[in-house]
Amino acid sequence: MSRPDYAEISVEHLTKQYAKVRAVDDLSFTVRSGRVTGFLGPNGAGKTTALRMILGLVTPTAGTATIGGVRYVDLTDPIRHVGAVLEASSAHRGRSARNHLRVICRAAGLPDQRADEVLHMVGLNTVGTRKFKGYSLGMKQRLGIAAAMLGDPRVLILDEPTNGLDPEGIRWMRDLLKALAAEGRTVLVSSHLLGEMQLLADDVVIIAAGRLIRQGPVDEVLGATAGAARVRVRAPEADRLATALRDAHLEVAVSPDGSLQVTGAEPARVGHLAFAAGIELHELTGESADLERAFLELTAGKAGAR
């Protein structure tokens, strides 16, 4: 028997039935350590409910969620194992950030100095004594990360952590999460910012309407769904070009702006065919498969089903 991954998140047949909605429906997936896993789905797909069930805040109707084989509620000193960032605005408005962190330290039996250490880590050390109500959304997100890191956990679970961050903040978050994963930690991060996820995640778990759509490394998910490469091409004689490309058994669609979308060929092949037919080209762009398109294709129609 192989040694179990002590930081692996394992979700098995997880289901949450509310009065009228099945928010999470027989969801199973695993999240490995040492990698950033993106948890993707349209709004209302059940991402937050699933994360809250993993963290023992919401009781599942059926199924289990374990971290290193143990339910969150059964962990001793849970915040030393798992750090979570669930919503940005989760501190008392009248309490300072530093005191907010010190309260958690007290409850978890951590030394008070950890509060200052994590404030330093997220760059809030100069504003730690300021009251929470004076914090911007970006600062609140940083404080959320700071709270999650108090116990130096081996597993991090983050729900939409880049919400409200400016481009610099997003870049900071990305570098931080990648660095934490590189240290061997498990990082599960939900988002609907797909471009961001493509830069950040190693693996993705895609859900819609509470069900698993696909799980796997980003490249695999992209390769499986994006199919053949696409090329955008623009020419003054678009009709002639379209005919020439179709004669070469390529799939051609005309965009509203007059450009052609060619499926099933590389830019070089399209350029060669145009050259051979003596057609002048004004633009020739290869479109790489992207997560957003894969995501939209995978979840198309599913979100409306609830």
Partner: peptide, 14 residues
């Protein structure tokens, strides 16, 4: 009211 229940119950699931 201040949504700190999440943080409190994450620290102390019991």
């Amino acid at each position: 009211f201040h949504l700190t229940a999440t943080s409190t119950f994450l620290t102390t699931p019991r």
